[in-house]
Structures are given as C-alpha cells and as structure tokens.
Amino acid sequence: MFLTRLVYHSLADFMSGSGSVSDEMGRILSAGLRNNPPEGLTGVLAVDGDRFLQVLEGSRQAVSTTFRRIARDAAHRGLQIVFCGEVDQRCFSDWSVAVLREDSLPAPEAREVDYDHITADGLVERARRIRETGLIARRETLNADRA
C-alpha cells in the first residue's frame, strides 16, 4: 500500500445546515469516527475559527474516496488542497476532531493565519497544535501493521 497524505483547508459553511455549529460538528464528528477507522484512515480535522484544516492519511484509494465525499459536503466552501502525495509515515496515527480554543494557544502562537500562503508543513503543524489544545474526540491508535 502506498501511504498517502492529503492536506487541505476550506471555509466552514455552517449556515448551509439546519442546525447549530455544535450540531454540524456533531454530524461531522460522527461521520468521521464511523467512516474513517474501518478504511484505515488516520488524521485530524481541526476547526480554526471559520476554517477547516484536515490531514487525511491512508491508502490512496481511501484518501481519494473520502476526499470526494468531503468535497460534496455543503459544510465546506472553497476547498484548497495544499498537499497530496505519498509519504513514508503518518503524522497522526489515530483519528481525531479538534476545535481551536483561543485561550489555550501559547502567547506567541498566531491567532490569525494567512491561509492563502500557508505551506503544507505549516498547516499540519497548525492542525497538530489545535488538536493538542482543543481535542473533542480521538480513537485508539491503529496497529502498526496497518500503517
């Protein structure tokens, strides 16, 4: 299996749904925890204000199928792929969804990010920091043989 990583950001369009932001996040969380682990997908979906940051890692087929489903979801607008390619190892060995808690970022950490100019490494690091400070849900680490 080729281990593939896809990194993207998009505008979170919560107004398209009939529920509140927390209802929409619950829907997205449920779908991710239901769909991604059986496909061997790992990564993180981070919510940074009005923006989604996502890192998906897994087989080329699983990443591609999942991203096509995401692209059709009305909760996302203006999807921008920052990186998609083969990698040697996972950055995230589990699956989680996180929401930024502004008060938990270290003082020198940028609260506003220029998403038009962020690099893939910068986006992965931003998602990692958000996950560390705003974890909502996480699943157990995949077995090493599924890497």
Score class of each variant (00 low, 15 high):
R34E: 04
D73F: 15
V47M: 04
E102H: 15
T42Q: 09
D116W: 03
R34H: 11
I130S: 06
M15E: 11
A71T: 04
L11H: 13
L3V: 11
E39C: 09
T66W: 01
E125S: 11
A147S: 09
L135R: 11
G134E: 01
V87L: 05
L29Q: 14
A75P: 02
S64F: 03
I70V: 12
L142I: 14
L11K: 13
Q54D: 01
A107E: 11
E125A: 10
C84M: 14
R90G: 03
R68D: 15
N143S: 10
T65Y: 01
V44T: 15
H76F: 08
L6C: 02
R69Q: 14
A12I: 02
T42R: 12
F92L: 04
E57C: 03
V113S: 07
D88L: 06
A75E: 13
G26Y: 03
I118D: 10
S22W: 15
S96D: 07
M1H: 12
D145N: 12
Q80I: 03
L56S: 03
D23F: 01
V7D: 05
C91V: 11
F2H: 09
P108K: 15
M1W: 06
T119S: 15
L6P: 02
I28Q: 03
L33P: 06
D94F: 07
F2M: 14
D94K: 08
V87T: 15
S16I: 04
A107P: 14
G43I: 02
V7Q: 00
Q54G: 04
G49N: 09
T119G: 09
A71W: 05
E112R: 10
R77F: 08
E140H: 07
D73K: 14
R27C: 00
L3E: 13
R126A: 05
A127F: 05
L135C: 13
D114T: 05
S22I: 12
E102S: 10
A74M: 01
S96N: 11
V44I: 15
Y115S: 01
L79S: 08
L53E: 04
V113F: 05
A71N: 15
L53H: 10
Y115M: 05
I70P: 01
A110E: 13
S93Y: 15
A107M: 11
H9G: 01
R69K: 14
I130T: 09
S104N: 11
R34Y: 07
T4V: 13
P108Y: 12
S96W: 07
L45V: 06
S96C: 13
N36K: 12
V44C: 07
G26A: 13
N35V: 05
L79P: 08
V63E: 00
C84V: 03
S96V: 05
A127T: 06
M1D: 06
G19W: 10
